[in-house]
Nucleic acid binder design. Structure first.
Lengths: 236, 236
DNA sequence: CTTGACATGGAACGCATGTTCGTGTATAAA
DNA sequence: TTTATACACGAACATGCGTTCCATGTCAAG
C-alpha cells in the first residue's frame, strides 16, 4: 500500500529529550513554540503533529487547551534507551555554595576563612555544581577569592577571575597553590613542585620561567587552587 | 509606622500546598486562575499579589510572561512546616547542563552545535549554577568547548580550560568572542571592538598588542564567550 | 504516472493566562 | 483625625500558546 508510518525518528527523540531537559531545568513543561525553536521546526503544527503521535504511542500525555499541559510519561525515556535510539543524561543536581571570602592581591596574604564556622553573607557566594568539583572535596573546606590586579597573569589568571580554593598549608607536587613568598612579600599562584630540598614554582603559562626557592621555609602555602572561573561581561 | 506586612498567612500556605499537590498530580504548575478557584479568591490580581510576595520571600520562582511559569523552590514547604518565618531570600538552586561539544583548536573552526541532531552526550556535559550565568541567557543556546593547545594563552586561556559559549554570528563591543580569521586560517579568542570600518581584536592579557583587521569580512564571529572554567587536577 | 498516506510549512483563529489599573476597605501609627 | 500601607476586588488589556486549516512536498504501492 502507501507509505507506512515510521516509528520513533530523530525528531521524536529530540522532542522527548528536550522535554525532559526543559522540565528539569525550569520545573514546568515547554510550550510548543519553544519545542519549535529547539528542534528548529518552523511550524507549530508540525510539532503538534509529532506530539500527537507521541501521545498515541504512549510517550507523553497532553491536556487539551492547557498551556504547557504536556508531560512526559515516566518511562518514556527508558523505553527510548531500550530502543537503542538515544542515550540519556543521568542526573546529579547538587549545588555547592562557596563563600566568596574576599580578594587575592599580589601584595597581601590571602584572606582565609575562620576555621570554626562558615559565616558568610549569601550575597557574595559562588554556586558550583558538585559534579564539577573533585569528588572527595568537602564543600565546607572550600572558599573562593576574586583576583584583583594583573599580577597573576603568569598563572593565566586575570583581573576579576574567581579562584576556588581549599584550605591547605602544604601541597603535593603538581598542585596549583596560592603561596606567600616571605622574601618577596607577595602572594602568587603557581604549580608546586618539591625537588630535593628546594621548591620549584611553575607558572601555568608554560612560556614563562619557573621560580626556584632554595629555602622551603620562605614559601608558605595558603591554599590549593581547585578551579578558576572567569565570568565575562555580557555586553548589552 | 503604619501597618506592617504580615508574614506567611493562611492564604500563602494554602497557595503553596495547592501548588505542590497540583504539580504532583498533573506534572505541571497551576495557572493563576486555577489557584483562584482553589483558594476561593475571586480576583487573579490578588493571587498575583500573593505570588509576588511568595517570590520575594524566596518560596517560589516565577518566569515572567510564561504560562504556568511558577515553580516551588524545593524546601519551601519544609520551611513552612518548620514554621520558620524566614524572610531570607532563597536563591533558587538551579543547575544548567551545558553540552560539551568538542574542542577548540587554533587551526580549526570551532564545532558549533549542529542544532539538528540530538546532541546530548551525558558523559561530556558541564554543570553550571544558573546563578552564575548572565540572567537572560537561554541555556539552550549555550555550549561548551575544551581548549586544546597553548595557542589561546594571550586570551588567558590555557590548555584544558573549558569555555562556555553562546551561539552568535556577530558581537558587540567589549564582548569576548571566538572568531575565525579567514586570512590566517585560525580560531582565536579575543575581545571584540568595532572601530570605524575596522575591527580590533584585543587580547585579554593587556600586555599584548591588539590585532587590527581592516576588512571586517575576514573576521567570522563564531560565538560569544560567557565564561571560562579551569579545573585543576586534584593531585593525590 | 497516479494515488494516497505521511510529512512540513505557514498563517490565522481563539481561548488561556499573566499583567496592569482603578478603586475600595481595614488597620495601625502619628 | 489623618495618613500611609497592607489587603482585596473586578475589569480590561496584552500576550502566550494550543488548535485548525490549507497548500505543498515526498515516497512507495498499484
Amino acid at each position: 500500500m502507501v507509505k507506512r508510518s515510521q516509528g520513533i525518528g530523530p525528531r521524536h527523540s529530540k522532542i522527548l529529550t528536550f522535554m525532559e531537559k526543559y522540565q528539569k531545568q525550569y520545573g514546568f513543561p515547554p510550550s510548543i513554540r519553544e519545542i519549535c525553536d529547539e528542534t528548529e521546526i518552523s511550524s507549530t503544527s508540525v510539532v503538534n503533529y509529532y506530539l500527537d503521535q507521541l501521545e498515541t504511542w504512549g510517550y507523553i500525555h497532553r491536556e487539551k487547551n492547557i498551556s504547557r499541559g504536556i508531560t512526559l510519561i515516566k518511562d518514556a525515556l527508558d523505553r527510548l534507551i531500550s530502543e537503542n535510539v538515544t542515550p540519556i543524561t543521568g542526573k546529579l543536581d547538587d549545588l555547592v555554595r562557596i563563600p566568596l571570602m574576599g580578594r587575592i592581591v599580589a601584595g597581601l596574604p590571602i584572606p582565609v576563612p575562620p576555621s570554626d564556622l562558615a559565616y558568610f553573607d549569601p550575597e557574595s557566594a559562588i554556586d558550583i555544581a558538585r559534579s564539577m568539583l573533585p569528588q572527595r572535596e568537602k564543600p565546607e573546606e572550600l572558599f573562593a577569592l576574586e583576583v584583583q590586579g594583573e599580577s597573576m597573569v603568569d598563572a593565566m589568571v586575570n583581573d576579576g577571575d574567581v579562584v576556588i580554593m581549599k584550605k591547605a598549608t602544604e601541597a603535593h607536587n603538581g598542585e596549583m597553590v596560592a603561596v606567600w613568598l616571605l622574601d618577596k612579600d607577595e602572594t602568587t599562584l603557581k604549580y608546586f613542585y618539591r625537588e630535593g630540598g628546594k621548591v620549584r614554582l611553575q607558572p601555568a603559562n608554560r612560556t614563562m620561567q619557573p621560580i626556584i626557592i632554595d629555602d622551603p621555609r620562605t614559601v608558605q602555602v595558603q591554599g590549593k587552587v581547585l578551579m578558576v572561573v572567569r565570568r565575562l561581561p555580557a555586553a548589552a
